[in-house]
Computed example of a mutant assay.
Amino acid sequence: MNTAAYMDDVPQPLFRRLGWLDWGYALLLLLGAMFAFHRYADFMDAYEIGFLFGSVALFSWLGWFWKPMRWLMLAVAVLSLGAIQLYNGSQESVEQVFLLKYLFASQSAIMWMNVLFVLAMLAYWLGLFARSDFAARVGSTLVWSAVAMGFIGLMVRWYESYLISHDVGHIPISNLYEVFILFCLITALVYLYYEGRYATRQLGGFVLIVINAAVGFILWYTFDRQAYEIQPLVPALQSYWMKIHVPANFVGYGTFALAAMVAVAYLLVDKGMLVSRLPRLEVLDDLMYKSISVGFAFFTIATILGAMWAAEAWGGYWSWDPKETWALIVWLNYAAWLHLRLVKGLRGPILAWWALVGLLVTTFAFLGVNMFLSGLHSYGEL
């Protein structure tokens, strides 16, 4: 065997593959964190400072691992900080500054996110049925733009909460309105990663269906319930645990949703529909498995973090609260799915149907519990 040729085929460790652009990206993140610390340290506790600089390491790694992520991070950082400067320390600036009123104020940016996701879905479906690579590429561009506007909206909303009052200020992942936005963003980002990994855009229209279902909820919740208004946190949510438990949970929810929509495509191809337009069954099966594996890992972490949070807030790790019970049901559902695939070697439509039904179980755990059941987690009633 040619040892030199073999060594060329072995992937090098991540740090050995980094160039000056990679380190420059990390340095920019660090400088941004230092600027934020210098500017807003008075509004941050020790945990938030830790999260701020910990996020530098996390997003540096993400940018090294997945190159498009760095451009998203830089765009969100630059535009969010630029928008914050336009406020001049006053919420009244929203009505006085054109760019805030129509583009970068939190509510404006989130509305743009909603519009862009709808347009992206239409572009993806046009690309699928017309076999237009251009339309599909437009769909991808629109999704990236929607994600950027959504994150800008959340970052600016975070700042706006502190403009109301230091006591009101909080990270915007505390109620149904905010976490539905987070769900859209995480689901879209995970899809974009796999879109690049598998070099296929044919699944975009399917995944955007579930994202736009969430967009529909956001619009209804905004206009019917005025949910966009920033409210103070209830005491139990005034905890550093929220800042790590909620994002981990929604990586799980987002990847489970992605797996379910891939399952729809799998079932169509298995029935002989859109065979020439969609990826092969083997590709769809692999994507479904990887999505559920990632989601299960994050959902497990989120469940453990939630138990630790519960012990601090209520004095016990587990109380069989409806939200906890349904979280366990979701966990057991996907644990069984992975067991059947990995240990028993099961493949085919039954796992696709299982992943699709799993989305219904997850949706009830996420939303249905808030609608129909009450308990300690009753923070997001409709």
Rank of each mutant, 00 (worst) to 15 (best):
A307T: 15
A336D: 07
L305P: 02
V343S: 10
A302D: 01
V262P: 00
H339C: 10
S293H: 09
V264E: 01
L274C: 10
L305N: 10
A263D: 00
N249E: 12
E312C: 09
M261T: 14
L281T: 05
L274M: 15
M288N: 08
I244N: 01
V269W: 01
A310T: 06
T303P: 04
E312Q: 15
E324H: 03
Y266R: 03
V275D: 09
M242K: 07
A311R: 15
I329H: 04
S276H: 11
N333Q: 13
K344Y: 08
M242V: 12
A302G: 11
L278D: 01
L305D: 02
Y253A: 12
Y334K: 07
G252Q: 05
K243A: 13
L340D: 05
M273G: 09
V269T: 10
R277C: 03
S291Q: 07
H339K: 10
H339A: 09
L305F: 12
L340I: 05
A310K: 02
A263T: 00
S291H: 01
L281E: 09
T325F: 15
G315T: 10
L328R: 07
H245T: 08
L268Q: 06
K323E: 03
D321P: 02
L258K: 01
A297C: 14
I301E: 06
I301Y: 01
F250Y: 15
H245P: 05
L284P: 03
I244D: 04
E282D: 14
Y289M: 12
S293V: 15
K243R: 11
L338W: 06
L305S: 14
L267A: 04
